[in-house]
């Protein structure tokens, strides 16, 4: 469904992505792991052109774009097939929770208001926030804001949802409520690409792990393989630091 081929990206003389390839099938839950600076967030942002890669191709169903020559129309088409959940939520501060969710439907997709309201209410109830529909983001907790952000993402019915460290800005209690929503989405078969440090999520929910370091994919595979039998040295090093000692023997 979605494929990234040979993606390169440089920021100010710093080559952040050095030829990365990713394949996403419908229903996949892909978790991208790696140390800071490995390029995983940049890769995610290249998918919907929040960053524009320097070189490479993106294939999205029948849409094949060269990142250098991609037209605004191509970019818009890709953005309409994806949704992004940000680390710091990025809810529209001047809109209520409900308005945040309907904005993309009414304005970007020209869906009639009544239909959009129905879809939005359903999305908010799915993330458990029906009672906060008319609250502004300034009156919501971090966990609630992130769940509204997820509702905003699912309401537009994207082919794939991109999550950029969705729980990194939340304390452990709020993290739990957001991860629960994400697990539910995964169970329903929604395609997700997630950059995260939450190992339990990666282990329990993902069906494919991609480990990146210094701009390239070091290793990828099924969670049980990566976590119990990592092949590369760098992977072993990373996992031994980040996993609790008694969980896995590497």
């Amino acid at each position: 469904m979605l494929e990234l081929i040979n993606i390169y990206k440089t920021f100010n003389n710093n080559q952040v992505l050095k030829g990365v390839n990713i394949k996403v099938k419908k229903g996949d839950v892909i978790v991208i792991l790696g140390p800071s600076g490995s390029g995983k967030t940049t890769l995610l942002r290249c998918i919907n052109f929040l960053e524009r890669a320097d070189k490479g191709e993106i294939i999205f169903d029948d849409l094949r774009v060269n990142v250098k020559t991609a037209s605004p129309g191509d970019i818009s088409r890709i953005r309409k097939k994806t949704a992004f959940v940000f680390q710091n939520f990025n809810l529209f501060n001047n809109k209520t929770a409900l308005e945040n969710v309907t904005e993309g439907l009414i304005v970007a997709r020209k869906i009639p208001k009544s239909e959009a309201l129905e879809t939005a209410k359903r999305a908010l109830s799915k993330v458990g926030l029906s009672d906060r529909e008319n609250y502004y983001p300034s009156k919501l907790s971090g966990g609630q804001q992130q769940r509204v952000a997820i509702a905003r993402a699912i309401a537009v019915n994207p082919d794939v949802i991109l999550f950029d460290e969705p729980t990194s800005a939340l304390d452990p209690e709020l993290t739990g409520e957001v991860l629960a929503v994400m697990k539910q989405l995964a169970r329903e078969g929604i395609t997700m690409v997630v950059v995260t440090h939450e190992m339990s999520f990666a282990r329990d929910v993902a069906n494919h792990i991609v480990f990146m370091d210094a701009g390239i994919v070091i290793e990828e595979g099924r969670p049980d393989m990566i976590f119990t039998k990592p092949r590369e040295e760098r992977t072993k090093q990373f996992l031994s630091r980040i996993l609790p000692f008694d969980d896995y023997v590497i």
Partner: peptide, 27 residues
Amino acid sequence: VNKGQLEAALSIGMSPVQAYTRIIIPQ
């Protein structure tokens, strides 16, 4: 206005003009 507001608007498919008039400029 936080740059993330613009990114969020673009990421759900709004055009830059829509993002500015509905989200950025009001704030």
